[in-house]
Design a binder for these strands. Structure first.
Lengths: 128, 128
DNA sequence: CAGATATTTGACTTTTACGTAAGGGCGCAT
DNA sequence: ATGCGCCCTTACGTAAAAGTCAAATATCTG
């Protein structure tokens, strides 16, 4: 486990640009430390980037990803705040379950596509 | 099963705008028939809209959705084409499985968030 | 310490997926 | 005949998420 990663190391690891990482910083999603002006990414920052990209793959906007990330680092807080977080988490989970169902449905359809293609291929072989 | 739906009926059913449906037509995703200039959506068009919106929820771009849709209505075709489709379908399925894993991971993290919040709430009750 | 390589900020541009406004047509209930 | 609701096209506008480029530093390496 490295102490620090440079910006270019992370861009190579994740296949993104430096612009993207700076953009995420501007958006308040990550907070790499600085040595002079140069950004240094700690393992925790790297993990955050991973979570951000995961959110992107699922079609979440930056704003939504920010919300999710903020839930992760929620402080002890007071009762009202805790309840708010619990509710938000429940909402997101519901949304994720919907997405999962969408995935299952699409997977099923694509399997049908494959079967149909294989079937058609078999027909063509017989006919020739 | 209705013969035709008007554009407004579909916007109400799916919570989208007429602009969106016209945009999808411009993009070649749907092809409602016309009575004069007015679009008439058949059940098959309605199903397509459903599939498009499902794709959107999963973070697919219009271009990607177009690809998926084209697999569904792939014609009997010739051997090379069929193989291409089979490969594309396999790729998409892999992508979907990745997304599903992303969802599972995020769900697990959110459950941890909830547990942590509930734990903290319990602490606060004891302390008071 | 020089030269190469990496990083910074800032500004402008691009792409995607629509939103929105303008201007007009059709059918029908008042 | 007119007001209402729904429909059409054309065209410009916009927000999000970066891409791209320039010019100025920083950092590493021999």
């Amino acid at each position: 486990m490295r102490d620090y990663y440079t910006i270019t190391e992370l861009t190579r690891e994740f296949g993104i640009s430096t612009r993207t990482l700076r953009f995420y910083e501007d958006e308040g999603l990550i907070h790499p430390v600085r040595r002079g002006r140069t950004r240094l990414f700690r393992p925790a920052d790297r993990l955050l980037v991973k979570q951000i990209l995961r959110g992107k793959r699922l079609g979440f906007s930056i704003a939504e990803i920010r919300e999710i990330i903020q839930m992760y680092k929620a402080p002890p807080g007071e009762v009202g705040q805790l309840r708010t977080i619990i509710n938000k988490a429940a909402e997101k989970r519901e949304e994720l379950r919907q997405k999962r169902k969408d995935i299952e449905d699409t997977l099923a359809e694509l399997e049908q596509v494959e079967e149909a293609c294989l079937g058609r291929l078999a027909e063509l072989r017989v006919a020739s």
